[in-house]
Design a protein around this nucleic acid. Sequence first.
DNA 1: GACCAGATGTACT
DNA 2: GTACATCTGGTCT
Length: 219
Amino acid sequence: MKPDLRPPSPCLRLTSDLLQLAEWPRSFYRRNTVQVARALIGTWIAHRHHDIWYGARIVETEAYLGTADPAAHSRGGRRTARVAPMYLDGGHLYVFLVYGMHYCANVVTRGPGIPEAVLLRAAEGPPGTPARLLSGPGRLCAHLGITTALSGIDLLAGEDLRLLRDHSVRPALASTPRIGVDYAGEAKHWPLRFFDRNSPAVSGSSRLSSRVKTILNPD
DNA sequence: GACCAGATGTACT
DNA sequence: GTACATCTGGTCT
């Protein structure tokens, strides 16, 4: 049974100037998943609720590389009702419930039948938003009002969820292994987590840890 | 920083 | 039926 949509936090209401930003085209999402995960840092995620737009700037992502990635829900070609949205065309949304309590939002990449995706781990709200409000995938969904009711929607179909490109800020891109995938054997070491080193919203203290590799030439 | 409880859908036997 | 999960918040050291 699908849960109801939940209202976003009022402090995430977007100003009209941000809503002028252009959406990413389909071709953006169909690219290599690592490229998309990196390029989504700095992108705004916008959610319309009762005709009002709320949103935040993405500052942390993780790439999940499909059937050959032991950390991905689609590992080994798994194709259950829950993960079905991962098999859609790039530019769709995949949302799942984890630990019985928390929702996690992913952006589907590549083409139809190739189940890869980018997990949205953290974001920064508009100016004045508490720094840690969206720090973590569960918090991000909770405060943006994202539930599995939105799993499978097309971000480019003019629906209530959109991703808006913003070139006004240049992120200080860095990478580490992914969080919470200790079960994934060798893949738990793959450096597929990306974040803006300058953002206070990035989860934990890992932002400054020695495991962090700064990416000098983003994209 | 480490450890732990919490709540329940999902995958698999 | 049963074990586990792309997490979070609280407590203790």
